[in-house]
Design a protein around this nucleic acid. Structure first.
Length: 425
RNA sequence: GUGGGCGUAGCUCAGUUGGUUAGAGCGCCAGGUUGUGGUCCUGGAGGCCGCGGGUUCGACCCCCGUCGCUCACCCCA
């Protein structure tokens, strides 16, 4: 017997359907426009990669690599992973293709992490982002942050806090890590349950811990900023001065280390204050001056930014921001049972107008209800009378003024009549 | 990986101490005479009460398991 148990989307995933997919599409469209405006080209890379791309990229000791990756073996025995974030694949592509630098690309992609789902956290979510490879110019960091900032601004998100920090480069951070490790080692017994034993695996992660015990220990310990070399200090100064110069408000977050191991120097995060939950970071990024090397390429500086689309949608909703959704221009109501309605919607569409109609020979009243629900600006009525006279009755569906709500136009004038009615809005 | 809450119509939810044919609002469909939406009125369709097992004369209700949703921790977008 066939199993007819209804199938459903996997745990932690969800369908984004008409009603909210318009918002999704608008966000992607807006980001695409802005990225293009900033000189970025679209990069499409596979959603799965050799696990090495991510292990070497985001760090074997990061939480994402250790326990959140979807890893699988294909029929040829190769071990792949669904991408948990966007940057590593882009850098892999850079290393593989040797494009001329600076290489500026943007992307939109699903990202997968095996975690327990929760508000604003899914096993598959979507990210928008940009990456730039091949320059360590600190003013570029400002541009990348600015692009993100302007993007949030232009989609209507208002309560955003930008946190920035510098993690130093390999050498100065190594020195800091020695001091930090020494400090953590001396106070290990005072750390939280998780880090008491595990701090040495990735000392920087302890800085990210929100537990009181850990915060107390790390606050009393060495601070990363005090160990920055002159170059890194200068780089950070240029970034912050640049943000000031372009009018972007920022706050220094000395404890901001972020979850991936590849970051060097500039790191930043955008907090959506409207999201009350712990998952309030809508976007973040930073510089990664070692990543290309780790993926087998020439040493190449890079910086990127990624933003979670679902979280951004939640934040917008929390702020009561509704993005305008594209609407139909005209809805054709045809009660003649022939092909007049079909021909008319096709004419309208060919003219660049959005048009739809009803099916299954419904009554005029029924078709009018569908027209109303469709959100179309006008209804175009074709009945026996119109058929006989070669005309169409155009009816305004938005305004309820009694006078002049509908009138007759010839078939030849329908397109211009719809345009006129639509623009009148 | 750990812990809490919850699974009844398409949606949001009622359902009395376990007791006949499981309800409401919204939505959907059809009508309210002679071609017209958004308001109003009338009618209708639609539920293995998540799934499996147990207790009982009898289970939407109680018990166990299971699947799923949700929230939190951790971490992140």
């Amino acid at each position: 017997m066939t199993d007819v148990t209804p199938l459903q989307a996997p745990i932690g995933t969800r369908d984004i359907l008409p009603g909210e997919s318009e918002t999704f599409a608008t966000l992607v469209g807006t980001f695409a426009t802005m990225a293009q405006r900033y000189g970025f080209g679209l990069a499409l890379t596979p959603v799965f990669e050799d696990v090495g791309v991510f292990h070497r990229g985001i760090g074997e000791q990061s939480d994402v690599a250790r326990k959140e990756m979807y890893v699988f073996e294909d029929r040829g025995g190769r071990t792949y992973a669904l991408r948990p974030e966007g940057t590593a694949s882009i850098v892999r592509a850079f290393v593989q293709h040797h494009p001329t630098t600076p290489w500026k690309v943007w992307y939109v992609t699903p990202a997968f992490r095996y975690e327990r789902p929760q508000a604003g956290r899914y096993r598959q979510h979507h990210q928008l982002g940009v990456e730039v490879l091949g320059t360590e110019d600190a003013t570029l960091d400002v541009e990348v942050i600015a692009l993100a900032w302007r993007f949030y601004e232009s989609v209507g998100l208002r309560r955003v806090t930008l946190l920035v920090n510098s993690m130093g480069h390999a050498a100065c951070r190594a020195i800091y890590l020695e001091h930090l490790s020494a400090h953590l080692s001396a106070h290990a017994s005072s750390l939280c349950d998780e880090h008491r034993e595990g701090w040495s695996r990735n000392p920087l992660r302890v800085l990210d811990c929100k537990k009181e015990e850990c915060v107390a220990v790390t606050n009393a310990g060495p601070m990363l900023n005090d160990f920055l070399c002159d170059d890194c200090r200068e780089h950070f100064a240029v970034v912050t001065a640049g943000l000031d110069a372009v009018g972007i408000a920022w706050a220094h977050a000395p404890r901001l280390v972020r979850g991936f191991d590849y970051y060097t120097r500039t790191t930043f995060e955008f907090i959506a204050e409207a999201l009350g939950s712990a998952q309030n970071a809508v976007g973040g990024g930073g510089r990664y001056d070692r990543l290309a090397e780790q993926l087998g390429g020439e040493p190449t500086s890079g910086i990127g930014f990624g933003s979670g689309i679902e979280r951004l949608m939640l934040a917008l909703e929390a702020e009561g921001v509704a993005l305008p959704a594209p609407a139909l221009d005209a809805f054709v109501v045809d009660t003649t049972g022939g092909t007049a309605g079909l021909a008319l919607v096709e004419t309208l569409r060919a003219a660049g107008l959005a048009a739809d109609r009803a099916y299954d020979g419904r009554s005029m009243k029924s078709q009018m209800k569908v027209a109303d629900r469709s959100g179309a600006s006008v209804a175009l009525l074709i009945g026996p009378q119109e058929m006989a006279s070669g005309t169409v009755t155009i009816r305004d569906l938005r305004n309820s003024d009694v006078a002049d709500r509908q009138h007759s136009v010839t078939l030849a004038d329908v397109v211009s009549a719809v345009r006129e009615a639509t623009n009148r809005a």
